[in-house]
């Protein structure tokens, strides 16, 4: 019988569709008998669904207050200018 810790790793592998036959039956058996793992698997699938359905809301994932510093902005601007002059 798998431990819950082992089952949680197999559940992640299952979400990639990569379980072997043996692993799949082990995970099924465990989930049948363990309510906490059953809930875990269900919740993780719901989380994946929610992220997929949300689309761009969850990207780029950093608050708007997170910005380039003035110094780096200036440096990047300068380098870009050099490059655009070269490509002319």
């Amino acid at each position: 019988m798998l431990t819950c810790k082992e089952a949680s790793v197999l559940a992640t592998k299952a979400m990639d569709g990569k379980l072997t036959f043996r692993e799949r039956s082990g995970l099924r058996l465990h989930i049948m008998m363990c309510g906490l793992c059953r809930r875990y698997v269900r919740d993780m699938k719901r989380l994946r669904e929610a992220i997929r359905n949300a689309g761009p809301i969850v990207s780029p994932m950093m608050p708007e207050s997170f910005r380039l510093s003035a110094k780096s902005r200036e440096r990047i601007g300068r380098i870009l200018k050099e490059h655009s002059e070269e490509s002319r």
């Binding site: 780029p60 708007e64 997170f66 380039l68």
Partner: peptide, 19 residues
């Protein structure tokens, strides 16, 4: 214009990359 990209998208790209 390419000279506007940094101003328009610099922070968006930065946040995306940092995340």
């Amino acid at each position: 214009r390419p000279s506007e990209w940094l101003g328009l998208y610099g922070d968006i790209l930065y946040r995306y990359g940092y995340a």
